[in-house]
Design a protein around this nucleic acid. Sequence first.
DNA 1: AGATATTTGTATGGATCGTTATAAAAATCA
DNA 2: TGATTTTTATAACGATCCATACAAATATCT
Lengths: 207, 207
Amino acid sequence: MARKSSETSPVRRGRPPAYDVQTALKRATESFWKTGYSGTSLDKVAAATGMSPPSLYAVFGNKHALYLEALARYWDISLAATREALTGDHPLDEALMLAYDAALSVYFSGKGHARGCFVVGTAVTETAEDAAIRKSVATGLRAIDADFEARFRLAQDKGELKRDADPATLAILAAATMHTIAIRARAGTSRAELRELARKAVDVICG
Amino acid sequence: MARKSSETSPVRRGRPPAYDVQTALKRATESFWKTGYSGTSLDKVAAATGMSPPSLYAVFGNKHALYLEALARYWDISLAATREALTGDHPLDEALMLAYDAALSVYFSGKGHARGCFVVGTAVTETAEDAAIRKSVATGLRAIDADFEARFRLAQDKGELKRDADPATLAILAAATMHTIAIRARAGTSRAELRELARKAVDVICG
DNA sequence: AGATATTTGTATGGATCGTTATAAAAATCA
DNA sequence: TGATTTTTATAACGATCCATACAAATATCT
């Protein structure tokens, strides 16, 4: 569900906003990505976005709603990237590696230390006590599982995979590989080592 | 490295401490487990432990040192549990399931909502900006990997595993399965479903 | 131009943050 | 008993937290 922006009246009335909402959301995401939801103050977000606190509240509601929107945006982007890698016309093992490469380029996209996955690195912590964040995470995880499973099912139909393999189980292992990469990236493992890890995991998963 | 406790002089001089350090550390761990490091104030920890803030500082130093000690204690306990499961005299698949069952009973040990893994649920968030926590997490992850790998190597020697299997790669997949369980438990997946997930993953991993 | 509408920056409110000063309380020592 | 040692509870410190009141700024409308 996208934020309303240009579908409002073509000519707006008062003083024009000084900052673009989407880039502000991106900057806010980067702030939360570093130090988590609880560990990131709204002042930090304001500094990162260049917006004043009142503007942030006018646009996003409050800190919690802002984080939820950042989380939804991250899911949108990363689910699309995973799906694109898996639905392209590549052999099974290549498709899986494309998905992991896409994830790695996100996990190592920051300036300083590797940030890992935004969900695993910041949202999972909040899921224990925050129902809204928990729901977003649970839904996203199911979507990833489904995308992997669909690809394995297709592979089985095309004869890329043994008949007795269980696509649902292989999907769990493929997702688990993604998750362990997300954790390890944030914990300091190098990108090269993680890519090798993915390569070996793919070899086992594809049989 | 254990905290000094009873190896001091048998007869101590001043007013005796009212609370046991180990149980206080356990209570503090449970506080952080719910809402994470940044999301848990020292007042909350004080309320959970029954200790006053000055007592907490006298015993543990500060909030950061207290969390690090809680993290070290958690690693000690969970690594010991995993190692016990894997080094017992069981067939490979049974040993792996014992390890996952041990983890599950920890992840679902709380009163309210499932807490998942303390490391994945609270420490990973901090690893991006906190070098000390990152080091603890990295070391612990390597230890888990090594324990799994040793068990797979043993299985290969005993003929439980195919000759061409790579113990290091299987260890990564076994650890990845543990990690995805840790994430999903905190995100709301039921214990029964996670056990089934583990069962299927073990079947694939063991070939 | 004047009225209206919307965003902006500043400044701050009340609560909570991590941490510590202080003195009373409770033990052993002489 | 009185001095010494250690822990305790209370209270508060300055800093920071999330959130908002307010008025100046900047646009379109009549």
